[in-house]
Design a protein around this nucleic acid. Structure first.
Lengths: 195, 195, 195, 195
DNA sequence: GATGAATGAGGATTCATTCAT
DNA sequence: TATGAATGAATCCTCATTCAT
């Protein structure tokens, strides 16, 4: 008689262990053995639950993306009746939220990005993230701009988010405050120009 | 007397092979064996010339950075008597120059960025790149803005460059034209606001 | 549930294989690959069980020493109520017992001795052997001699044992009979001188 | 036009470097590269002069043996008109002479002994040493004992020399004084018994 | 004679995975 | 379900040797 409900316990447990392992030993150093040890279980069950290391990585990235859009959706909802600019800033805030700027998470994202270039499954996931962020921004900006303009601004804001995020994480820690302010400055200019 | 002048031939040859191998097989798949094969030499001479795989990687990243700043310097020189805005755009153009947006190079950069988080030597190199780009931008922007403002804009432009570059490369190819235009738009706003 | 009790099977199995490999291919030729093959298992489990080649070597030397003192203890026990001279000869006999003069074992000892000079862990083990043999001899000799004399004789007997053993093994095989007789002659002189 | 007389310079230079390298890095760590560096020349000339690493090792051991018997012969000559016992002690003294108990030399001897068991050329050399020491002792002892007795004592003295030497070197340094005294004690007993 | 370049074979070790229990 | 045992492939690296200069 098998224990029931174990997948729901083990899978998040292993995903968390994977993120912690990447944080501590880097993407290359995060072996199944290390991850298993971090999770306090045998490395063999990674295969059991995810069919292999790649499966775990895919699930981990998927989990990271899901979490990001959950935060984003929550922040945007809060600004339902506010201006378009406020809504864009809500998205920016979500991007620099606590859980997304945690070094652990940052290192994992970086690793996945680099891997995405050679791993089709991760590549697809990366595109999901990228397009969804873009469309979220366009959707909000359409309230004030025409499609073409909205797309351009969305592209710029998305690039700013990723760029700030990337530079920050490589510099030893993301300065959320400064990053957000800089993007705010840009938005002030853009919206003022449109008025 | 031994063959002379080989280091000057072999080192660039192996660096190029490393970039090609990363391009083709990813950072993880770029083994010394593969790199050696790509260079048409025995994997053992990687140790001979670079003391090991890490040494080759460090030299490769160093070479990539050197090349970038050579292009940047050339572009900026061309705009010696032009406006500050033109000079900033020269830096942007350098960032999206042919050799830097080549998929090969992009993949190598990504791999190094991800590795930089856990490899001290690469981390240092990454910081060299980051700070030098930042200071190049600040230097030019000081012609028209006060220090504080110049720093803010430099940060934004640098983030835009890296962000565009990152998103583009993950999306399957960098659209140099569009990226540059978007940054141009931002600069137009900023300089106009300053006038 | 995993297979249970394997360490108790594998460890002695690998130690025996190591001794056989050293016998057949010399200390330098006893690679993990060869040892694994001799044991009929994958070389990788040497790391699994001993953490590496060094660990296996240490365990092997430890096993050799343990076996020696087990025989020694057995032989000495047999002579409980006999004269001191008989007890010393029991120790000598133990040193030239079947299992210790087996060429296999001799070659392993030699290799460990040579390695002991540059491998701290083996060095310590070698000292354990050396001191324990010395103290066993002194202990027995104290029955008939004062401390100073006992120590001197113990030193001489220990040197005779190792020397006979060394010369014999290098000459193509230890002549247990002759070696024991020679030491007996020495003891006869020493005890007669003391009477 | 080749430089003449180089072999006479290079060979001893490389042999000395080999002994130093074995001393410093152990028998296993004494690679041609290390030896070459110690000698201040390219590792390649080891092949040039000795036909390979094995050739160098053989020459080194031969040199060690030659040196030993030169000292022995000198010491024995000094005692030309003295008693047989004095002559035996001269041999003992030679064995514990400065150059032979130097840790450098000790480590090399040990390595060669261990290797001798699997390297025919070293095996032969080892036997040369062993037999020559034995016959030197027998020759001297025949002045006072019959052949059978002389052989037995020679065997014991030789074993004592090697044993003291071995135990001493493994214990961290040979105590020449104590070793010689112990053998002297033995000889006193033997000669007194014969009187 | 002497060198650094270059190599191929082989070193220990690590890893993701599978399997019997 | 979960495990430790076990493996084969692959890792980087080292080494003795050869070669062109």
């Amino acid at each position: 008689m098998p224990k029931v409900g174990m997948p729901e316990i083990r899978k998040p447990q292993l995903i968390e262990a994977a993120i912690k392992a990447i944080d501590k030993y880097g993407f290359a150093g995060a072996t199944v053995s290390v991850i298993g040890k971090k999770a306090g279980v045998s490395p063999a069950i990674i295969n059991h639950y995810f069919g292999g290391k790649d499966g775990l990585y895919e699930a981990t990235m998927r989990s990271l993306i899901r979490e990001f859009f959950e935060i984003l959706s929550k922040e945007v909802t809060k600004t339902k009746n506010k201006s378009a600019k406020s809504k864009v800033m809500a998205i920016v805030r979500a991007s620099f939220s606590q859980s997304q700027t945690h070094p652990q998470v940052v290192k994992a994202w970086m690793g996945f990005w680099a891997s995405a270039m050679h791993t089709p499954s991760l590549y697809r996931l990366q595109n999901v993230y990228s397009r969804r962020l873009q469309s979220s921004l366009v959707c909000v900006l359409r309230e004030e701009f025409d499609v073409k303009k909205a797309r351009g601004i969305a592209l710029t804001v998305a690039a700013l988010i990723d760029g700030m995020w990337l530079r920050g994480s490589l510099a030893g820690g993301i300065n959320k405050q400064e990053s957000a302010e800089q993007i705010q400055d840009y938005l002030d200019l853009v919206f003022q120009d449109n008025a």
